[in-house]
Design a protein around this nucleic acid. Structure first.
Length: 436
RNA sequence: GUGGCUAUAGCUCAGUCUGGUUAGAGCGUCGGCUUGUGGUGCCGAAGGUCGCGGGUUCGAUCCCCGUUAGCCACCCCA
């Protein structure tokens, strides 16, 4: 009986190779997509002064209660970051003068929130943020939508929808209806439309937000109609017209770039619960697993760093919820059994010097393909079985018999076929098998 | 944070409602048939504090309470 029961904290998880390999690959993909659009990486500390993290939050904000916060050994009130946007605000306030605007950065790192767990909701999870700050141009908003789309495609998804809206549209409508002071409540309620249905939202608009039944019906009607219908009815409002124009431009560009129909859709009902979004908002849902929630969300904010600097820093960006996406892929059976970093395994035989095997393996590695030498001299079958279970693609059999005649056997683990080739042809044969 | 459901072998689950001798299955794992070739077959083996703690009882995996974790709804959000 061990003295201490090994376990992880609620909402925290281990990543065995099958998950960690996929996760690392996803991070690589995200990095590549972000860089292809000109975003540059930054990094910031996991731990910040609590006052810095709390500066932008309302005193009663839900997220403030979810903070992992403690007094450090120097008596400082500190907390783990709960997102990457607030650290960006602090970072920007300290460094924009050196970097210049517009400033485009991506930031991949873990964040912590002490909230209740659920499928795809953890207390420690990886966020992959990208933002453009220092410009109000809709070109930046459009770019965010394109990046989200490219990101999901690069990660291997086809059936997804990036839902886009502009808060000015619904907010403008609410103003026209004469209840502009209730905008926040209206947006929060309407945001639940997809999940709870029109009846529940209507009830909430009336009972909680305090609209008349007619106003609630108008809001719901607008939220579920398309852009043209809304403009026709409420276009006299500059605010509505302006938001609609930006959304139309976004759709035009998306179409011109060749984004397929359905991948990007205007949905006026989405508005995001977060108060600091002021314009365009984005949410991304998987068609095959919508219940896991948005896997990539974001929006435009007027002033990122107002509490830390006098310089006005508007911006727009989004965050890929990589761990949530990973959970979705796990549930959708998209994960393979691969648990090894090297696709080529050299079988160990009695009577073969390690120097010879490692020499051959080094040749394979130099060609850019990972290779490992099995450490133990065991039955060949057992070695092959382990190789396949780990997800290796190729086994190399170089035993005394082969080496005596100057050949090696290269075995395709999937098809279970093998070919004997001269030692000098090892690398080309390995590449041939892996290419096929 | 609020409410609900669940917890049995590495995995997926029976069994518990009607407490009672050694808690089962499939798959997986390991060994042998086959001391240099893994998907099938046959033989054999290992592996379970029935999440944890307490209570009721002659006796608890089963009933009760607590706790931890997972899941679901709300809240919020990636």
């Amino acid at each position: 009986m061990p003295a201490i029961q090994p376990r992880t904290l609620k909402g925290f998880r281990d990543f065995p190779p099958a998950l960690a390999l996929v996760r690392e690959r996803m991070v690589d993909v995200a990095r590549a997509v972000y860089r292809s659009y000109g975003f540059a990486p930054i990094d910031t500390p996991a731990l910040e002064l609590a006052e810095v993290l709390l500066a932008k939050l309302d005193p009663g904000a839900e997220i403030a209660r979810q903070l992992y916060r403690f007094v450090d050994n120097g008596g400082r009130d500190v907390a783990l970051r709960f997102d990457l946007t607030v650290p960006l605000a602090r970072f920007a306030a300290m460094h924009v003068q050196d970097l210049g605007v517009p400033f485009k950065r991506y930031h991949i790192g873990p964040v912590w929130r002490g909230e209740n767990t659920q499928a795809g909701r953890y207390r420690e999870f990886l966020q992959c943020d990208f933002d453009t700050i220092g410009t109000t141009s809709s070109a930046a908003d459009i770019e965010v939508a394109l990046v989200i789309h490219d990101l999901l495609v690069a990660l291997g998804f086809e059936r997804f929808t990036v839902r886009v809206s502009d808060r000015h549209v619904l907010a403008g409508i609410v103003e026209v209806l004469g209840v502009g002071d209730r905008t926040g409540g209206v947006l929060r309620s309407v945001d639940k439309l997809a999940k709870q249905g029109p009846d529940a939202v209507h009830a909430e608009l009336v009972d909680v937000v305090g609209l008349t039944s007619g106003q609630a019906a108008d809001v719901l009607d607008a939220a579920s109609s398309d852009l043209d219908a809304v403009v026709e009815r409420f276009g006299a409002s500059d605010r509505v017209a302006g938001g609609a124009a930006r959304l139309r431009e976004l759709l035009e560009v998306a179409a011109a770039v060749g984004i397929p129909d359905g991948r990007l859709a205007v949905d006026l009902s989405i508005s995001r619960g977060l108060d600091y979004y002021t314009g365009t908002v984005y949410e991304t849902f998987l068609a095959d697993l919508p219940t896991i929630g948005s896997v990539c969300s974001g929006g435009r904010y007027d002033d990122l760093a107002g509490l830390y600097t006098n310089q006005s820093l508007p911006g727009v960006g989004a965050s890929l919820g990589l761990d949530r996406l990973l959970a979705a892929m796990e549930e959708l059976g998209m994960l393979g059994a691969e648990t090894t970093g090297a696709p080529v395994l050299f079988v160990r035989f009695p009577g073969v010097a390690l120097a010879d095997l490692h020499g051959l393996a080094a040749d394979v590695r130099r060609s850019g393909v990972g290779a490992e030498v099995y450490p133990d001299v065991k039955k060949v079958g057992a070695q092959l079985q382990l190789a396949e279970r780990r997800g290796a693609r190729v086994a190399v059999l170089a035993g005394p018999a082969e080496l005596a005649t100057g050949v090696v056997k290269v075995k395709d683990l999937a098809s279970r076929t093998e070919a004997a080739v001269p030692r000098s042809a090892l690398v080309s044969e390995v590449r041939r098998v892996m290419g096929g």
